[in-house]
Amino acid sequence: MSLQNVWHLRRVADTASKACYICYKPSTSVLITPDNKKPKDFFYVCPSHLKDRGFCSPIIDAEEDAKKKKDEELAREIEQVKQEYEEKQKRKKEKKKEKKEKKEEEDEDKESKKSEKEDDRKAEQEKNNKIEELQKKAEHKADDFPRIFTLHKNFYQMRINRIRSIDLAKRNAERMKDPALFPSVPKGDI
């Protein structure tokens, strides 16, 4: 019955929040043991305590690093899309200026105005669509917090002691139910 010192961070709904293990404030963050074996242990903790180096230490995961890199790449792509859109708008403005000069010479091009407006609308829609897609990808990241932690030895020992005391209480309750535990009444006359 050994409890590994590996804890995974999980989130619960606001309605299911319970008191923090440390400060007793309502919290939606839960540290839970990852395996399905007994003993299964969990407790609620505030996100601020997860940053405290005296309470726990994060275990850096290669998957998390890859996710962070992907998020950075998405942010770069968003910036590139924005820059490309701005460049296109500058080019269109320059073209409009040139066309205005030509229009002063020729007022017969009413259809070109409509096509320019349509092109502007299409370009803006494309930009918005690209940005929305990239932001949706970026939203999939949960938090900046690591997801796996190890408790420091004092807190870890407190969790082990809690599990041992629960097991001891269960065993004592089973013993109390056993009638052979108590002494029998004397049978003979004295």
Rank of each mutant, 00 (worst) to 15 (best):
A66I: 02
D189H: 04
F55E: 01
S184L: 10
I148G: 01
P186H: 10
C23S: 09
Y21A: 11
H152W: 07
P146Q: 08
A180P: 00
K82M: 06
N172V: 13
I160Y: 02
S48H: 06
E132I: 05
K102A: 10
Y44I: 01
E73V: 09
S17Q: 14
L181H: 05
I59V: 14
M1R: 11
E126F: 10
E64A: 10
R164H: 12
N36I: 02
R53T: 09
P34L: 09
A75M: 09
A75I: 13
D35V: 08
F149A: 03
P47M: 03
S165I: 04
K67M: 09
K51L: 08
I32Q: 03
L74R: 09
R171N: 11
I190P: 03
A123Q: 06
K25G: 01
Q125I: 08
K38Y: 13
V81G: 01
S27E: 02
I60V: 14
F182M: 07
E104N: 11
K18D: 06
A13K: 13
N172C: 10
A19V: 04
E106P: 00
K117Y: 04
L181S: 09
K40N: 09
K40V: 14
K130P: 00
K137Y: 04
R11G: 04
G188T: 03
E73F: 15
K100Q: 03
K67N: 08
V12T: 09
R159D: 01
K68M: 14
V45Q: 00
